[in-house]
Each structure stands twice: as C-alpha cells, then as structure tokens.
Amino acid sequence: MTAQVITVTSGKGGVGKTTAVANLANALAMDGKRVVCIDGDIGLRNLDVVMGLENRIVYDLVDVIEGRCKLKQAMIRDKRYPELYLIPAAQTRDKNAVSPSDMVRICNDLRPDADFVIIDSPAGIERGFRNSIAAADRVLVVTNPEVSAVRDADRVVGILEAEEKGSPALILNRLNPALVKNNDMLSAEDVLDLLGIQLIGIVPEDETVIIGSNRGAPVAADGKSRAGQAFRNIAKRLQGQDVPFMDLEPQGGLWSALQKITGRK
C-alpha cells in the first residue's frame, strides 16, 4: 500500500483550509489510518497551533529540504493519535526555499509508510500553491458560500484543470442553514451549479470550530459537534465509503422539532 496525497486549497484566504486539514487528519487517524500532514504555508505556519502541536516543533519542512535534519526528525507525533504526524512549515521569509520537486520528493518518501499525506496549501495561486499541488493525487477545494470565495475557487479549479490535476472535489465550509433558508446565503446547490465540480462535503458554520481551535483540539473528535460530524463524513468519503450528506436544516426550528417527533433524527 502507498499513501494517497491530498492537497487542500482554496484561492481565497481564510475560508477554512487549515481547519479542514486538521480535522480530516484527525478523523482519518480516528479511523485507524496512518496520516502525515504537511503545512505548505511557508512563512505563515498555522497548522501546528490548530492541531495543538506548536510546543513540540524542533525541525520544519525547510530543514528537511536543506538537509539540516532527516525527514523523520521533522515529523511531530500527535498527542492523541500515535499514527498522526505533522511536518510544520518554516517561518522563513524566503518563499523560494521550497520547490515543487522538493514536495514531490518528500511525498514520495512518505508514501510507503502512510495511508494519507494531507497538504495544507496557502491561499493564492502563487509559488506556495504550486508547491502544494505538485505531489497531489487528489485536490480538495474549500470555499464559503460567498461571492468572492466562490469566484476565487473557480479560478483555482480552472488552473487545476489546465494543469491536468483532474477535477477537484469541493468542501463547502461555513454554510449557515438558517441564512440559506431565508434566501440570504448561496445554497450548496447554487455553489455546485456555478462551479461545476463534485461535492465531497458541506461543513456548517459552527462555533465549536473556534472553541476547538482555541484549545488546539480539532472538533473531529467531538461527537457532539456538527462540523466535527461533517469532517468525519468527508474522511469516510476519502476512504471510498458512501456516506449520505448530513441533513443541514436550521437547528432548533419547527423542522427539527417535527423531525424529533417523527423520529427522523
């Protein structure tokens, strides 16, 4: 077996790439998979804090590339899951410290001993993005149901197609079901229709995500978190399982009361 390399990217910044990587990695590890995450956001390291591993960093990606340490030495083991690792980004300002071929080489070195390698791409369509997609077997594009985020996602999808990376799958993050119901937010159908790519998951706007990131504990492990559930479902789909999409009706309304009565929940 050899690992599948998955890159999470978006075009627009701040839509939830790092959150998605941390949660998918945790959810895959919960399913017993061997996972290595790579923070591809050189100069703006963040995946370490979202995963709660910032105090364990000794070496980083650029140290590996420049030969200051072995690959294994830069792999930080997760606190909860012994088969989950993070390779942190360097905080260097030299964006050229990493090249696409470096990423391909590192991923090839990781493939034999992992099930999934998940790369957190920086925002934008520059060097860091190119590095992050270089080794990808599969690309996930994260967007929010907002005009600018969808527009930037479309640009990225166009570039991925032009680079023959195949059609990416969409994670629609921060969907607010109450706003959609009120016709004040693009629905998942709207976004899919506009982008014309396949959907791999819808993650609701959920305050537990922020609480989890405060603690450095991704919500995938929180059985009560709706966003956590959504990420666990996406992780199952990445493993090839057919998981139905969550029912994202507004919480606490008449609808969910009815569903409770009729036992559909």
């Binding site: 907002e146 005009v147 969808v150 527009r151 479309d154 640009r155 166009g158 959609v180 009120n182 016709n183 004040d184 937010m185 693009l186 629905s187 709207d190 506009l194």
Partner: peptide, 19 residues
C-alpha cells in the same frame, strides 16, 4: 430580490467572464 439570488446571478456573470 433575495440576496442569495443576486449573489448567484452576479457570480454567474463574473465566472463566465473570468473563464
């Protein structure tokens, strides 16, 4: 019009021109 439908219509046009 609902803000969602203006968002969709605006995006539809923007994406055509971007693409």
């Amino acid at each position: 019009r609902s803000s969602a439908s203006s968002a969709k219509e605006r995006l539809r046009l923007v994406l055509i021109h971007d693409r």
